[in-house]
Structures are given as structure tokens and as C-alpha cells.
Design a protein around this nucleic acid. Sequence first.
DNA 1: CTGTTAGCGCCTTCAG
DNA 2: CTGAAGGCGCTAACAG
Lengths: 390, 390
Amino acid sequence: MSIAPVRSVSSVPPAPPRGRPRPPSGNAVTPTRTSRTTTSKPTTLRQVARAADVSMATVSRVLAGNYPVAPRTRQRVLRAVQELDYVANTHARALRGHATPTVALVLPDLRDEAVARIAQGVEEEATRNGRSCLIGTTRGDPERERTVLRGMRQNGAGAVILIGGGAQDPVHQEELATIAGSLAAAGSRLVFCGRPAPDDATPATVVEYDNEGGAYAVVSRLLVQGHRRILFLGPATGSTTAAGRLAGYRRALADFDLPFRPELVVGGGLGRADARDRLARRLVGGSDFTAVFAVTDNAASGALAALREVGLSVPDDVSLVGYGDAECATDLLPQLTTVHVPYVELGRTAVRLALGLTEGSVSAADQRALLGTHVVLRDSTAPPPRRRPT
Amino acid sequence: MSIAPVRSVSSVPPAPPRGRPRPPSGNAVTPTRTSRTTTSKPTTLRQVARAADVSMATVSRVLAGNYPVAPRTRQRVLRAVQELDYVANTHARALRGHATPTVALVLPDLRDEAVARIAQGVEEEATRNGRSCLIGTTRGDPERERTVLRGMRQNGAGAVILIGGGAQDPVHQEELATIAGSLAAAGSRLVFCGRPAPDDATPATVVEYDNEGGAYAVVSRLLVQGHRRILFLGPATGSTTAAGRLAGYRRALADFDLPFRPELVVGGGLGRADARDRLARRLVGGSDFTAVFAVTDNAASGALAALREVGLSVPDDVSLVGYGDAECATDLLPQLTTVHVPYVELGRTAVRLALGLTEGSVSAADQRALLGTHVVLRDSTAPPPRRRPT
DNA sequence: CTGTTAGCGCCTTCAG
DNA sequence: CTGAAGGCGCTAACAG
């Protein structure tokens, strides 16, 4: 319904490569494959060699540039390369042992903002190191995850980076451990990036961020401002991420000698809609809190909507904080105080560690990193109002 | 400052593959490589053959499963494969001509929501067709774009999909045309996905969405509601995307016999901050419009902020519409009326077309598609107020 | 400086 | 049913 192929134009027959106006072809042999209408295979080294009237080795050397070649010869070769529009075949190269292995990236869904940020970091660092980057999505399905991982291994990935939505399933974790082993045995590396890794015996790399610490920090901030009854809006269990944030919340409370009140944990998922609904329901009997710690910026967005619906103003009546420093945090009104997570750096670090490029690091065996998080102060918090709002 | 490697744990030495408790190794030859601590190369077909005491050909056949093999032999082979944790080398396969070529994806930045959606579509459709998906980012730099494209070609990509931020630079477009030619000559395909393509003679595939039509539709909606002075918030030039949306805006106006008023075009970029600033500045002398068509949902978000700042309410005082149906559209309050763009489908279609999988299509030569857009009605529009707001 | 040779790991005829 | 052999495209020793 929303798709409508409308035009269908030109059935362009694959034209010959349209290089610059072909320079007069010197003393090169007949260009053999000047215009081919059939879907032909790409030019090979041999063809170039023939065209330039040299051996394949010479061509290879000219291209590699790591070996002396007579200037005249080089010219001829270069011209032939241009003319035939030659590019070396990566697979053959790899087979011969001369290709830099790729970096593989396995994730649930690219549309997730955090995932996309990590992916961006991975890609940047990979290309910065001359590796290309293979990507595979799993939709959070453990079975697909294994399938994809296997595929990446076949591809001879030099590092496989796993991000997002780790299943708690111990069986699956065991499988992952096995895969990590295979990878490690082949000189590669499985990286758990921002998600829980199997037991410590597994030869895997782990890159995390200080999830609990961030939660501790924002909640402390609320406490310092004078809030005493702070809602935890998010699941108490099920997701490692949420669990860590809850832990930070509790620790902050404890440090202020406040008891943990289970009735202030609202539950729900990580998303916006769920948060909104849960909080709205909670709000029907009036509010018994002065601040909300949403497990996620999206959840915070939902919370804001719910609060608005019942006429509660943020931050005048209720303070609100989120987690993740998503884009929506600045779209909201008021702009959201939240915890910044260095997602892009997470991705970069994953690649560096896996590839053994930890510059400045003493031991190349550091296969574990924990990046810091920090609070971003914006406009959604204030000291609690004098009279508790009805 | 935001990064703080904190812990550095276990220097796990690459352990041997931890397969299930190794089954008693039948009559297989000594497993040769049972525990290796050095970073060794992956198992080869030959090793499996030796272990199973058969020829390489037989192993190959068992694995391919397309040729009769004695059950007993197959068992032996399978066991050896398991034991040695063998996976075929993709490069060798590719070289031999038996690998499905990959799909390459070239884009400016994964963090862009629209880009991420298209990428997701591409990846899904690619794996649905058994292709793996290579990704490369360009940061919008034409030179990097060319570099990356070259790399993809070397990789023997079966299709190269180019998305986002096309540079207007004619020189670069010419280069792209050349690359498209090379690709086509090698039986591959360059796809321009949601971005302008070079001249029609170029052997490229083009997948677009009805950009102008979407703009026409939303603006018409505003006009129907009675709005007569509608601000166009976005650049009048520079970006093909913005230009198309402006064109739709103008056509809608024309269809209502309204003149196009250049003073209602505010200018600015596609982003939030710019939109906010521009509109705020515009607003100092009061508002001479009853509705705003923001070129982008992000721009709309900025507009909303600017309007709020001067005490104008949406949609009571001013109606607001965006474009793109981004996630933030539903985060805003009021939720934003906008134009939905089928980004994911765009990606899928790109792959289908490039790979020649256009099911149901008559001519396999359709190398051009235009997907429809549609308005998503939410809460940010209303009929204009009686008295024009000051 | 340049050419010849020998594989990288796999698949696929062609013979047994 | 199974094995031996050749070669995909490229590069790295070795000779010239």
C-alpha cells in the first residue's frame, strides 16, 4: 500500500567502462575486451600483463610498489591497468595470505540509536585500520545470532563484534563461548560490546561502559537536590542493562541512608510506550514521588508525556532523568538531564582491543575495557516542590 | 575526559576450541592439532581429509551434499569436521567461483536515522538472499566515497548501494558514472538509493521515494484546513531533498491558486538547531503565518521549541508539519503530523533490483523504482485561529 | 630489473 | 562411489 513502483525506465545494457577518453593505446596489445555486452567477469592480472607485454609478476610489483621496476615498464603497466580498468581481486589476495582480515559486526537492529552509534564507531575504527567491515543483523534471535556468527567465521573475520540485546539463556551463552573459542583458535577474537559475556574462562574480549556508575551518579544528583522519593521507571529484572541501572539507583539510595522501597519500582520495558502507560497507571492515585529515574531516554520521553497528561510539570512538580543521552533527550521540553554513554567510543575500543592495537597499553593482552559514563545536566531537574503535589 | 579505561582483567591466553566434551575419536587419525597455544591458522579441507582418511574431494562432496557418498564415509567425514571445527574458507570458495557475491553498502554516517533505516532494509534483504553485507562510511566526503567504492569493487561486490548525502559536484557525479560503468561491466550494479543519480546514460540503478509528492500532500492538508500563509522552514537550495520538498510546497500552493511568497521561505539547514534559530529570529517581529512546513522532523522539533519560546501554542496558534516520520515525531508534544518515507523498503528494493530479483516484474531490466510516501496525521495541525496571533 | 615457478584452499571434471 | 589433477587470481621466492 505504501509501496508503488511507478516509473520503469531505460533498460540500459551494461555499457563498457567509461574511463576518460581512452588515450591512444601506445604499443599495447589489442585491448581484447573493448566492448562487451555480456555480463563479463572482471579484468585479471594476466590480461593486464598481456596488454602491457610483461609478466604477471611485474604487474603485481608495479601495483604493490614495493619493488624496483623500470620507469618505462611501469608506465606501460599503469596505462594498461587504466585502460582495462583493472582492480585486484580481494579473494585471491586473501587466499594468498595478503589481505587484512575484515571486522565483522553482529547486531540486533540498526535502527536502534545506541546500536547505530556503536556500529559507527566500529566502522570508523575498522577503516582507519584498513579493514573492511562486514555486518549482520539478528533481530535479537539467538539462533540467527549463531548462524550469523558462523557465517562471519567462514568469512575469515579478524574480529567479530557482538553488540546489543544479549540473551540471558545459559545454553546460548555456552554456544557463544564455544564460538569464541573457535575464533580465538583461528587467531580471531569475539568481542562482547556493551553486553554481558560468558564466564571468565572464555577467550573473549569484553568492552563495557560503567552502567551502574552512571545510574549512581544521576540518582545521587537527585538526592543532593533534596529528592527523597524517586521512582525507578523500568524493569527490575530481565535485562542486564536495566538491572545494572537499578543497582546504581539502590547504591545511591544506600549512600544517603535511605531505604530501598520496592513500591517505587514501576517496572515495564525499556521503550517509550510502555513507560508512558505504566507511569500513567501509577499516576491515577496521585503521585507519591518527586522525581523519576527513567531507565532509558525513551522511557523518560514516555514519562514526560504521562506527567503532562495529568498536569504535572517537569521540573517544577516532578524532576525527571533518563539514561543514554539519546538524541531525543534534547528534543524534549524541557531538555532531559541524562547519563551520557560513550557508544561510539565503545565501538572504536572494541576494534582496537580485538585487533591488538591498544596503543600505549603495556600488556597487549588487555582484553577487557570499561569506559566511563557521566551525567549531562540539562533542564529536567529541580529541587522538589515544598508541598508534595497531589 | 569522558573515556576512562578502568579495569584491565584476565590476560586470557587463546584457549583451544571448547567443543562439546570431545567424543571418543573413533578410528580417526591422530587429531594432529588438539591443543595449540599459538595463534594458528584455521583448519583446512586437507586436514579434515587426512583426519577422516579420505580424499579432499570426498570431504568437499559431503559438505556440499550434492553428490552421493557412502553413509559410513559421510559419518567419518562429518565427525572429523566437527572435531576439527572446520569451516570452509570463503575466499577460496569465491576464487573458485562458487561464492555468492556480497552486497556493499556505502553511506555517510550510520547515526542518521534515515540512513540507518535504509541500511537495515538493505541488510535484511541481503541476508534473505544469502548474501553478506559489507559496509563503509564516508562522512559525506566525496573523495572518501570514491575510495570506499573502489574498495567495494575490489571486494567483488555483487551490488553496491549508495545512500545519503549526494554531493552536487558535477565532477564527482562524473566519477560516479565511471564507477557505475566499471561495476556494470563486471556484472555488478551501482545503486543510487534515495539520492540523485548521474545522467540517464549511466548504467546505474535508481531507487527513490516520492519526495515531492509527500510535500505536496502535507501542504495540501494544511491548505485544506484553511491555512493560507505557510512558512517553508528549510533551505531553498543546496540539497536535492530540500529542493524537492520545496517544489511540492509550491505545487500545492499553485493548485490552490495561491501565489508563492519568497518571504515565507525561511532558509536554514536540515537540522534541529538551525531551524530553531532561524525561526526564532523570524519570530521577533511577530508571526505572519499560521502554519509551518518544516523540511525535516528534526527541523520541526526545532520549530516547536522556537514557537514555545515566544508563547505560541501548537496547534492552537500555529500548525506544524514535518517530513520523514522520524522517531522524534512521536516524542514531541503534540505528536507531529509528518510524511512517512518508506526507508526500510527503499533499502530492500535497492537490493532486489540490483540483484535482479524483482519478482513479479515483467522485464528484469527495471532498474528504476519510485516508492510512495504518505501523510501521517497526528496532533500538530488544526485550522488556523480566527485572529492572526501577534 | 624481469620472468618463471609454486602454491594459498577449494571445487569439479575425468578416471578409476 | 571415490581419488587424482587442474586451475580460479594473485604474490613470493628463486633464478636469470
